[in-house]
Amino acid sequence: MPSQLLKEFLDENDIKYVSIMHSMAFTAVEVAKSAHIPSRELAKTVILNVDDELVMAVVPANYKVDLDILRQTLDTKKIQLAKESEFTPHFKDCEVGAMPPFGCLYDMDVYIAESLSEDDTIAFNAGSHLEAIQMNYKDYENLVKPRFIFLDN
């Protein structure tokens, strides 16, 4: 089931978006393939524990998260992938692994790969393994106010 919280938030802010239904997919690369979106253009949400705070790292679907690079980029010593048990209580309206990159809805800071800002649109999981949302990137940036991270893949 798609995130009702996300859709209400987008509608309340008069944001135009497209829902893309696709076959069941559990990895970001599978979602991109199923939804016919280049994997470098589909954003995946990775939940990290940085200095005992949960944050979102939003990276292209084809990117493999390198904690050493993120540690340097975020200038922190303590960083790790968050455990499901740590973050699932925050995402009651989402299926595990299909969280949308809207930290503002889940009380988390968002760090986004700068490369995702290069396109006019951004696509991402809509809270389920069957639906993605595509919207204008500038609208996303204005709503979420992510901090940029510069990553090489």
Rank of each mutant, 00 (worst) to 15 (best):
A82K: 03
D93C: 00
L130I: 15
I122L: 05
L143I: 04
A82N: 03
E86S: 09
M99N: 00
K92L: 13
V96H: 06
C94Y: 00
F87V: 04
Y111E: 03
T88I: 15
K92Y: 11
D109K: 09
G103K: 00
K92W: 14
N125E: 08
Y140V: 04
K92M: 13
A132N: 05
M99F: 09
I133A: 03
E141K: 12
D107N: 09
L116Y: 02
Y140C: 06
Q134T: 14
Y137P: 12
M108K: 04
S115D: 14
A126L: 01
H129F: 11
N136S: 15
P101M: 04
T88Y: 03
M108Y: 11
N125G: 07
E95F: 02
G103C: 02
F87R: 02
E131Q: 14
G97V: 08
L130M: 11
G127T: 05
D139S: 07
M108F: 12
T88H: 08
G97F: 02
Y106V: 03
Y140D: 00
L81Q: 09
L130N: 11
S117H: 03
D120G: 15
D119K: 15
Y137W: 13
A113K: 02
S117M: 12
Y140R: 08
G127I: 00
L116H: 01
D109M: 10
S115I: 12
E114M: 06
I133Q: 05
K92D: 14
D107T: 07
D139A: 11
K83N: 13
N136E: 12
Q80I: 04
Y106L: 06
P89E: 09
A82Q: 10
I79H: 03
A123N: 04
F91R: 05
T121A: 13
P89T: 14
M135C: 06
F91M: 02
L81D: 10
H90G: 09
F87E: 01
V96P: 06
A126F: 10
Y106D: 05
Y140Q: 13
Y111R: 02
S117Y: 04
L81K: 01
Y111T: 01
K92I: 15
A126M: 08
K92C: 14
D93R: 01
K92T: 15
Y106K: 02
K83F: 15
D93Q: 03
F91T: 05
A132I: 03
S117F: 11
T121N: 14
T88K: 01
E141P: 09
C104Y: 08
L143H: 08
D119M: 08
K138W: 06
K83R: 10
I112S: 07
A123D: 01
E131I: 13
V110I: 07
V110E: 02
D109E: 14
E86V: 03
I133R: 00
D120Y: 09
N125Q: 08
H129R: 09
M108R: 00
E131M: 11
A132K: 01
A132H: 08
I133W: 00
A82F: 09
G97T: 09
Y137Q: 12
